Simulated scan of single mutants.
Amino acid sequence: MPLWALVALVAAAAQTARNAAQVSLTATIGTVGATQVRFLFGLPFAILFLGLVMVATGETLPTLTARNLIYTTLGAMAQIGATALMLITMKSQSFSVTTAWLKTEPVIVALAAAAVLRDPLSWSALAAIAVATAGVLVMSVKPAKHPRDWLTPGPALTGLAAATLFGLSAIGFRGGVTGLETGGTLIRSTTTLVLSLTIQTGTLLVWMTLFDRKALAASLTHWRRSLGAGFLGAFASQFWFLGFALTSAANIRTLALAEVIFAQLVARVHFGQKLPLRQGLGMALIVLGVGLLLQSQP
């Protein structure tokens, strides 16, 4: 298995654990409060990771470049915007419909990365991405009583916009990592992670101070649980960014669909929930798509 594939799988597993940790926080401090926890409480751990990398490798911080700053800022702001649009879509649509729109991201990433970053994209890789994405759609989409809901202009546009922004965030982060001209893969990816979290933390602190002080105060009150979610978020992001340094954003975001499988396994083993035939078929398609993607790589 290629190193980038192993890195992406570790990131997906860590992100699944982070999502589980944030469930109770969402109920306690609200969606916005729980969302900013991954940035505010993740930043100190990212800085710690950077320090450990510098000690282990003996390298100094790479010199920031205009390309790194521009792409990292793009990725950071796109990720915040995507999260906001996702929440807006969920207010008017079911979770399954929202998920279906969001999981078009790998296809969007593949096409946009090929155009913007000149990441290589073969027809076989694109087909593999399409198969894996179809698997997520099969798992997420239940037969609708009112098919017209899928075509409601507002939710459709916000859902696709959220997927596009999530895709842009992946492209921005890869562009940020590759925009650093000095240093090894590990220190370049970790430096970009710290920069991204700094931008996101500063932006959300200003926003919440002005518009949602209650949620900000609540996240600080429940700092123990927030630290746990922050650590898992930073740990997952460390591997996402390392993956972006190793291969194209399309490869990483496609393999990230394994997170859906991990979530189903957690639901089956930990909560004793049965796996419906439709979801089993979707998981099989995801595994097939990932396998085809790995085979398509040189």
Rank of each mutant, 00 (worst) to 15 (best):
77 M>H: 09
56 A>D: 13
207 W>L: 14
292 L>W: 09
32 V>C: 01
260 V>P: 00
207 W>A: 14
35 T>Q: 15
228 G>W: 03
149 D>S: 15
191 T>V: 14
7 V>N: 07
233 G>F: 08
258 A>L: 02
287 V>I: 15
220 L>A: 11
188 R>Y: 03
209 T>H: 05
260 V>T: 14
289 G>S: 06
277 L>F: 10
59 E>Q: 13
282 G>P: 03
36 Q>K: 05
228 G>A: 00
265 L>I: 15
289 G>P: 09
96 S>N: 12
121 L>F: 08
121 L>Q: 09
168 L>E: 03
90 M>N: 06
298 P>Y: 07
283 M>L: 10
75 G>V: 02
20 A>Y: 13
38 R>A: 07
81 G>R: 09
233 G>Y: 01
31 T>C: 00
93 Q>E: 15
96 S>Q: 14
131 V>A: 08
92 S>K: 11
145 K>T: 15
5 A>S: 13
117 L>M: 11
80 I>C: 09
163 A>F: 09
152 T>D: 15
113 A>Q: 09
261 I>H: 06
249 A>K: 07
144 A>L: 15
80 I>S: 04
4 W>Q: 10
294 L>S: 11
163 A>H: 06
124 S>N: 11
98 T>L: 04
141 V>E: 14
258 A>Y: 02
94 S>V: 03
191 T>W: 02
173 F>R: 02
285 L>C: 09
202 G>A: 12
163 A>T: 12
105 E>S: 12
81 G>L: 08
206 V>W: 07
133 T>G: 09
271 F>K: 07
108 I>H: 04
272 G>K: 00
22 Q>M: 12
163 A>I: 06
50 L>I: 01
94 S>F: 07
232 L>M: 03
218 A>E: 13
274 K>W: 04
234 A>I: 09
162 A>W: 03
7 V>H: 10
74 L>F: 06
221 T>S: 07
261 I>E: 05
173 F>H: 13
132 A>K: 03
107 V>Q: 02
8 A>N: 08
205 L>H: 08
113 A>V: 08
162 A>N: 01
257 L>R: 11
40 L>Y: 04
270 H>M: 11
273 Q>S: 03
37 V>R: 07
86 M>V: 12
95 F>I: 14
30 G>F: 08
177 V>F: 09
92 S>D: 07
158 T>R: 02
205 L>A: 12
80 I>V: 15
287 V>H: 03
218 A>M: 13
227 L>R: 00
8 A>M: 10
42 G>V: 02
115 A>S: 13
148 R>F: 09
131 V>C: 01
254 T>D: 08
218 A>H: 10
